[in-house]
């Protein structure tokens, strides 16, 4: 099993521990990855706002790199997944647009034919690897724990570009993986909400309210922690939870935000340093103690 790897810069830069836990899990599962080191940022939807053609061109370039290697792309971040999927969907639907982009990429020697699949690690685990096989790697059951799933906008929207029409069950994968580690996935109405990151620097008040609503309501529903497949969601929900909760609910940050590979690493019984929970701002000690 081999994938063209697109870790994204949040995992690379802002939350290196999430990248290392992902790498440790991939190694344990014997999933081979080859990083697309020449790939640029997806543009996160922000660049698309200002310069859609540049955004799409950069992404098609990335898709073409994987196509050349005849590999599907693996992402770790909801935003990367969403933005790459959207670009892919757009050019697959519009051959004229694809030709225009290919023309721009010609000089560098790329030509995208439209065959690359983009898959988040979450989808890969359920669809390609298989949950039964995944479970065979677990040494501990996390059966005392209740997790609130949090997908991140771009893992679920726009559903058309993400292939939900053919695979509607993708909206339930996170719960499935949570259950596979033996934990309980609580019914969390906010699981498809926005974490507020995109307006953090624009309208911090609103962003913090979103962080507070998401983490506070999950806590109220009895969650021990929140699990997300997206490092960006993690960054916002973890890093700003203290301020968000005290400003909006007058309470303290008390909901650890766990990146999905970290949860898997816990069930595998990997080494502490590989899991990287110690680097979280909201302490995950209690979660570890409950195992």
């Amino acid at each position: 099993m081999k994938y063209a790897f697109y870790p994204g810069c949040v995992a690379r830069g802002g939350t290196p521990e999430l990248l290392s836990s992902s790498m440790a899990v991939l190694k344990e599962l014997d999933i081979e990855v080859e990083e697309l080191t020449k790939a640029g940022c997806t543009g996160a939807g922000v660049l698309q706002e200002k310069n859609p053609l540049l955004g799409d061109t950069i992404n098609v370039r990335t898709l073409a790199m994987a196509e050349e290697k005849n590999l599907s792309i693996m992402t770790l971040c909801s935003t990367c997944q969403g933005v790459l999927s959207q670009a892919n969907h757009k050019v697959k639907k519009d051959s004229k647009y694809l030709a225009k982009i290919n023309d721009l990429l010609k000089e560098e020697g790329y030509e995208y034919k439209g065959t690359t699949e983009v898959k988040h690690l979450l989808w890969i685990l359920v669809e390609d690897y298989g949950l039964d096989k995944l479970e065979s790697h677990f040494t501990t059951k996390l059966s005392n724990l209740k997790f609130a799933p949090f997908y991140g906008c771009y893992m679920v929207r726009p559903s058309e570009a993400l292939g939900f029409d053919e695979k509607p069950e993708r909206k339930m994968y996170l719960e499935k993986v949570i259950e596979s580690v033996g934990a309980e996935a609580i019914e969390f109405p906010g699981k498809f909400s926005c974490c507020g990151f995109p307006v953090l620097f624009i309208n911090q008040k609103n962003s913090l309210k979103m962080v507070s609503n998401n983490t506070g309501s999950a806590k109220d529903l009895g969650a021990d922690a929140m699990v997300t497949p997206c490092p960006l969601c993690h960054l916002n929900l973890d890093g700003y939870q203290g301020k968000a909760r005290s400003n909006n609910r007058g309470d303290k940050a008390d909901l650890p935000i766990i990146h999905m590979p970290q949860m898997i690493a816990l069930a595998m019984g990997l080494e502490k340093k590989d899991i990287g929970l110690g680097r979280h701002i909201v302490s995950a000690k209690e979660v570890v103690n409950k195992i």
Binding site: G45, V46, E49, C153, Y154, R157, P158, S159, S193, C194, G196, F197, P198, V199, I202, N203, N206, S207, M210
Partner: peptide, 15 residues
């Protein structure tokens, strides 16, 4: 405050 820059691009409306 309240203008077009407050949108988080969450895509709920598109969906």
């Amino acid at each position: 405050a309240g203008g077009m820059w407050d949108c988080t691009r969450c895509m709920q409306c598109v969906e």
